[in-house]
Each structure stands twice: as structure tokens, then as C-alpha cells.
Design a protein around this nucleic acid. Structure first.
Length: 318
DNA sequence: TCTGGACCTCT
DNA sequence: GAGGTCCAG
């Protein structure tokens, strides 16, 4: 994999037993190679980003023993971790995600970076073609988007200064105003405010996030789980709702829409079954629904999921 | 508390 | 409609 993490372009490669990384470039640097201390620093950042100090095996065991279906999924999809993303980037990204599909979100975020983010220069002697030979096909996607350029995520300050019209031009649609207003609010609250929510309890985090423009329950919970250490938070979208109907409580199907009440019921179901790290468990169940992981699951399970989708079982409330 | 509609844009 | 949110009734 090749991509941007914070101010750097990183290349990651995984083997049977190890994970290797390499720094390809960074913001405002003309060096020919990263300093040794930079490499150490990046190693620490990766450990933090992938939350490697949290042992996954005990969680998997707990989830597997709590739920028969989860038992099989856990066996098929090992090593599914929740990332610890940078909160500002995470927040703006999920604001862009509302009422929007994954493919388009990626394009919008890349446009945001290219237009407002600081450019990342590759170290002397490294070209992306060289990196591509290691990285597989991810890098070709990035190059196709913006001519082999890498950008870090824009600052709150920059986004606060952006005009709504220009943001709309990048394909954000009505979310343009959300981005601008939230950036303005964040600037007002000061530099460390968002990160400081990591120390707060779930309810406070949720309340504070939902006060931001374009942030409802789902977006707030995503930001809380994926960047603010709220491990028991379960973001509920229509897919997670489907999962809950299918696996935990068929009576949820009677509900006509995802009201706050239903939303809370779904979250509570996950928590009562999977406990403290319900957010992580949710991530695993959610991943199992994605097309790219389907081939790893037992055939009968894939069949069952297809049947549910096609048979209108999940569509009862839609 | 919940429902219905609007909202950008693309398939 | 899509991996929602906001606003008015």
C-alpha cells in the first residue's frame, strides 16, 4: 500500500510474519532520505495509527464466544483493527460521507487535499514509478486522480478561509457549507479542542460533535470511534441496522425509519452482546458485509447474506 | 418523539 | 436511492 499518513507519503508492505514500512517523502522537504529519527518517529506513529498496543486476540475470542455467527467471521477475517485516525481529517471526511457513496467520497477528499492541502515532495531519488513496483495498484489510482502528486490534509485554518462556492466546485454539493461552518467553529474553539475530546466520556463527545454543522448521530459516532478512542461506540447506518435486524432482533424490522430511538436500540444490542469494544466488533461485522471481503467468508454465509439482500428481508423498512 | 421533504451529484 | 443532516410540522 502507498499513501499519505499525516505529513508523509508512506509505503507499507505485509508478509506472512512482518510488516515493513518506508518513507517516500514529506511536506516541505528536499532531503534525499528521511533522517533516522524520522524513521523511528514514523514507526511509533504507525503503532499508534493501527493501535498495535491493543491486543486483538482477546477481543476476537470474546466476540467469537458471544455470537455463533461472529465466531465464523472472526476466523475468516483475522486482524481487523479500528484505525486511530487524526480527528480533524476524520471529522471532515465523515461530514463529506453523509448521504453519499464511497467511490465519490474518495474523489472529493482527494480534491480537497489537492486544492487546499500542503504538497508533499518525494525524497530525491524516489519516483512514484519505483514505488509502484512495490505498492500494487493503489498508487496508480492516486496518480490517475492527480498526476502523481501527494498532498497532506488541509488545515482547519485553510478550510475556514475557503469560500462555499469554491468548495461546491469540488463536488461537495450542499456539504460545502457544512465543511466551512465546522471549520469556522473549530477555529473558534482553538487548536487542541477536538483532540481533547479523547479524554471525555462518550456522552460528552457525542454532544459536542453533534453541535457541529453537518454532524448528526451517525457522523458523530464515526468520528468518536475512528479518531477519539470511543471503543464502545457503534455507528448505525442502514447496513448496520440491517445486520441488527437479521442477527440480533427481527422485531427491529417493524420500525419504519432510523429514528434516534431505533438508533439507540441497535447500539445497545451490540453493546450487550459484545461489551466494551463493541465499536471494534461492529467494524468486523461491517467489513464482512463488504464485497472485497466476501470471498474470504464461508460460502453458505455469503449465500445467506445475498438471500437476505435480494429477498427483501432487509428492505422491509425501506 | 416521529414523519416528511429538501438537498448536491452520480449510477 | 446512496454508508445523513437539517428544518418545519
Amino acid at each position: 500500500w502507498v499513501g499519505v499518513l499525516g505529513p508523509r507519503v508512506l509505503e507499507l508492505r505485509q508478509t506472512e510474519s512482518d510488516c515493513f514500512f518506508r518513507c517516500l517523502g514529506e511536506v516541505a522537504s528536499a532531503e534525499s532520505a528521511p533522517a533516522a529519527e524520522t524513521v523511528d518517529h514514523v514507526r511509533a506513529e504507525l503503532v499508534d495509527y493501527f493501535q498495535l498496543s491493543k491486543p486483538l486476540a482477546p477481543m476476537y475470542e470474546h466476540w467469537a464466544s458471544a455470537d455463533r455467527r461472529m465466531n465464523r467471521i472472526a476466523a475468516a477475517l483475522p486482524g481487523m483493527r479500528v484505525l486511530r485516525q487524526e480527528p480533524h481529517e476524520c471529522l471532515f471526511s465523515f461530514i463529506c460521507s453523509s448521504n453519499n457513496n464511497i467511490g465519490r467520497i474518495g474523489g472529493i477528499l482527494q480534491s480537497l487535499r489537492a486544492r487546499y492541502g500542503p504538497r508533499i515532495s518525494l525524497y530525491e531519488g524516489i519516483d512514484t514509478a519505483d514505488a509502484a513496483t512495490f505498492g500494487g495498484d493503489e498508487i496508480t489510482d492516486l496518480q490517475a486522480v492527480d498526476d502523481e502528486a501527494f498532498f497532506a490534509f488541509p488545515s482547519v485554518e485553510t478550510l475556514a478561509e475557503a469560500s462555499e462556492e469554491e468548495l461546491r466546485g469540488l463536488g461537495l454539493g450542499y456539504r460545502a457549507d457544512f465543511i466551512r461552518q465546522t471549520a469556522l467553529a473549530l477555529r473558534q474553539k482553538g487548536d487542541g479542542w477536538l483532540c481533547s475530546l479523547r479524554e471525555e466520556d462518550v456522552d460528552t463527545v457525542r454532544e459536542e460533535l453533534c453541535a457541529l454543522r453537518g454532524v448528526g448521530p451517525k457522523v458523530a459516532d464515526c468520528v468518536a470511534l475512528f479518531s477519539l478512542d470511543q471503543v464502545e461506540t457503534v455507528p448505525v447506518d442502514t447496513h448496520v441496522w440491517d445486520i441488527a435486524c437479521r442477527e440480533f432482533d427481527p422485531s427491529l424490522r417493524e420500525c419504519l425509519s432510523l429514528t434516534p430511538n431505533v438508533y439507540a436500540r441497535v447500539g445497545a444490542l451490540f453493546r450487550s452482546r459484545f461489551g466494551t469494544y463493541s465499536g471494534w466488533a461492529h467494524q468486523l461485522l461491517f467489513a464482512a458485509e463488504l464485497p472485497q471481503f466476501r470471498s474470504r467468508l464461508p460460502a453458505d454465509m455469503v449465500e445467506e447474506m445475498a438471500e437476505w439482500r435480494g429477498g427483501g428481508g432487509g428492505g422491509a423498512h425501506k
